[in-house]
Design a protein around this nucleic acid. Sequence first.
DNA 1: GGATTAGGTTTTAAGTTGCAACCAAAAACT
DNA 2: AGTTTTTGGTTGCAACTTAAAACCTAATCC
Lengths: 184, 184
Amino acid sequence: MGDLREPLRDLIECGLPQALEVMGERWSFMILRASFNGVHHFEEFLSELGIARNILSNRLAKLVEHGILKREPCADDRRKIEYRLTEKGFDLLPAMLALRQWGQKYGAEVEENPVLVDERDRMPIGPVSILAHDGRILTHEDLWLTMRHNVGKRPEDPGFVFLDGSTPDAIAARESAKKAAASA
Amino acid sequence: MGDLREPLRDLIECGLPQALEVMGERWSFMILRASFNGVHHFEEFLSELGIARNILSNRLAKLVEHGILKREPCADDRRKIEYRLTEKGFDLLPAMLALRQWGQKYGAEVEENPVLVDERDRMPIGPVSILAHDGRILTHEDLWLTMRHNVGKRPEDPGFVFLDGSTPDAIAARESAKKAAASA
DNA sequence: GGATTAGGTTTTAAGTTGCAACCAAAAACT
DNA sequence: AGTTTTTGGTTGCAACTTAAAACCTAATCC
């Protein structure tokens, strides 16, 4: 089961495949969301999500295995197990919120509830954003795609490509990426 | 006490399930990433991802159906089809980057390539972040979970819960300690 | 005209998911 | 003490999804 993604190996030049190895599975994000909403026990997840017992068992084990949740027997009732987010699990919050906000924007008109609020003023959080080094909010129109060795160079240099893909350059960029990977 | 968190259990409405309907499928995010990297044609996706033809066909159709990609016959070569990101597709960039950055942080020691840079200075982008209304960067420790009708209310009101699952009791205790101090 | 390319579909095997039943340990009830 | 209930599983089996390979059709190249 572990080497299902063989063909991706040569493609792994970013963290996405690693992230998807756990979070790409069905239910993983829903379980994560429940965790963020204060669900901690097996039977709670079960009734909250409507997932099958065996699948839940399997997913929780995988999330624990990957260090996203930690599994601790309850002190007061030793039948109970507590599943809690680790720091690594909490670090998935931006990813989950970004997905959720996107779903909210384009999906049905469900009114999000409960809501995450800023502790400081108890107002809802803003959109999850891509920030520049100096803190400016960037959109896809502000971004270029380039090989690592071009970072910081002047835009007249070759190898910069708009994110929305000026076609010939995009191909060139991909090809040089391939060659770079091949020669490395 | 326990029922402060009770309402959080039942009415969990948010955009996540909608988002996962498309993007929760295997390969969807990898196809999206390829799109962001300038891949536009069927055979390109095929060799780039190592996905099976039938699955790719199916996934592309689904992404088109959901308005994330648009499918256009090529003008110059009428055998070719161009798959391009729509605005809705571009809007998935924060979600994809957040996931990718998380995978990068905890996953492997792969050096990300190609890289997204800020058009302004051609420097790599910063982390995808949760922003407050005033632009401050928030972490999970700065966030509370509450029902929509509590937005903006003072924290002494019931219904605020820490994201890390601290019991409402803890908040109540903390707040009544504050009140006691204030009135004394 | 014949080979090749692009983008599929079909077929069949393998893997995954979901339901329902079963199980064991700890706690609660009587 | 003995039975019942709760909690967190596992097992077995049917239904569905994914994968690999072969096949198909239209357009383009030579």
